[in-house]
Design a protein around this nucleic acid. Structure first.
Lengths: 261, 261
DNA sequence: CTATAGTATTTATACTAATAAATAGAATTA
DNA sequence: TAATTCTATTTATTAGTATAAATACTATAG
């Protein structure tokens, strides 16, 4: 035991380096990542198959498979069987990134107010960025989503459908804005709210007022966006978010009462 | 081949369901995740060892290992060898989540302006949330970071050190604010900027003016935070960010000229 | 000539068995 | 009692074999 891996008891001197053993599979993952960036590999490009990787890295099948699994979990490759199968490079899908970030937040579940606080910051900017970039097909989607909320819901299911459509409105805007990070955060927050709506607040009495306010804001937003008026879109979205935040606070209050009773 | 997995040529009707095969290892991962949430397992709790998992899921060692690798990559468990080794539940460390999100952004590298645009939104809120929560030790850290930037840098290394310290100031605030998502975004943006500073803009002429402005803002911020004046902190941070955004734009301009020459 | 069914190949997927490495804790020794 | 060595436990890695899935190619029927 020449180089102890943890803090030794009777040695005063510092650890020379981080001596922690790096697993073979992780070394391979790092090598592959380097290979990707150095050779400028793009989505769709193929990795060598398992046999070749075994030879390349002089390791066994199991180790290669662990490395590939790691890359797959990270969303960097997808793996198929059959001729022309194997691992191919992918751009990480949103769903993957979203799910991994949710793991991070698992033990500190963000509350409704926390989510809305962030949303109030982010959504107005998304609206402003989307304004000059929306295409005709985007407008069509937005309009159909608005139309979906026009008629009053007649039952629980329809109400849910409409709430989803409301949120989808924001996803469309996020997808159109050309700031990838902003878009990601926008979509992520919408996902979080969707979960809140569906799993926590589903059984509460309908909030006619809330739905109505949302619908109005969305209509006005659509108008501003059609006019390519980024500043007005931003301002409308800001008000929309403040309104939503307010309604959410009210809802949380009701929820609390409900809980105590 | 009864249920084709891809779009069939001569069938008009929709796919009934997603018939995609779910790998054994991924099934195990899902089972473990369910087990964790259903039984309210907490960080520090141990998973069954490999042998038990093999029995539990009636599968081979290799498959269990792939499942554990997946959980490890996601940052949900850490695995040790030896007695009392095995997989123990972890709260996903920030570094893990950060790295996974960077994978997502790999093919659409956010630009400086994009990052600063988000920062301008987020940092003022972080400052306001941190104001009432900072402890004496946090103030101590902030002050030592400010002190680090007081004396003018005499060489390249010192200049880098100071830039890092400047960014670290924001990380301290992010860590103290009690909105986990906001904190994550703040830290993440700081990491992105650190990379920009270190790898892209390192060799550019010093920006005396910029450093000086930052130092001043940080000093004023510290004052406002000590006074627990959230509103003033928010406003100062807003100005600070606008100033930084402005300097960054100038820098990008210089970089462009440099590139053309 | 076209569409369908069959088949052969490539590739991942899964399992078994055995050895190596790491480490916590017990036993041993000075 | 304090350092050291031993030992049991557990993961890490390897090798080899067999199975299953996906696809390209070929043959066949209409």
């Amino acid at each position: 035991m020449l180089i102890p891996s943890q803090a030794p008891k009777n040695m005063q001197q510092q650890d020379f380096e981080a001596p922690k053993r790096i697993k073979r599979a992780d070394q391979i993952v790092e090598s592959v990542k380097r290979w990707v960036v150095v050779n400028g590999k793009q989505p769709g490009d193929r990795l060598p198959n398992e046999r070749e990787l075994m030879e390349q890295f002089e390791c066994s099948k199991g180790t290669v498979r662990e490395a590939l699994k790691s890359l797959e979990v990270q969303g960097l490759v997808s793996i198929k069987t059959g001729p022309n199968g194997g691992a191919v490079l992918e751009r990480v899908p949103y769903e993957k990134a979203s799910q991994l970030l949710r793991n991070f937040l698992h033990f500190e579940q963000p509350t409704g107010p926390e989510i809305y606080a962030l949303r109030t910051l982010v959504e107005p900017e998304i609206a402003a960025l989307a304004a000059p970039r929306l295409q005709e097909e985007d407008f069509a989607r937005l309009e159909s989503l608005v139309a979906c909320c026009e008629t009053p819901a007649r039952n629980f299911d329809e109400r849910m459908q409409q709430r989803i459509a409301e949120l989808e409105f924001h996803v469309v805007l996020a997808e159109c804005c050309d700031n990838a990070m902003l878009a990601f955060i926008g979509r992520f927050l919408n996902d979080m709210i969707r979960d809140l709506v569906i799993f926590k607040k589903a059984q509460l009495p309908e909030q006619q007022e809330f739905s109505c306010a949302n619908l109005n804001y969305h209509k006005q937003l659509l108008e501003a966006l059609r006019a390519r008026d980024a500043e007005r879109a931003r301002q409308l979205m800001r008000e929309h978010m403040q309104s939503a935040e307010h309604f959410n606070r009210e809802l949380e209050g009701q929820l609390q009462k409900h809980f105590l009773a």
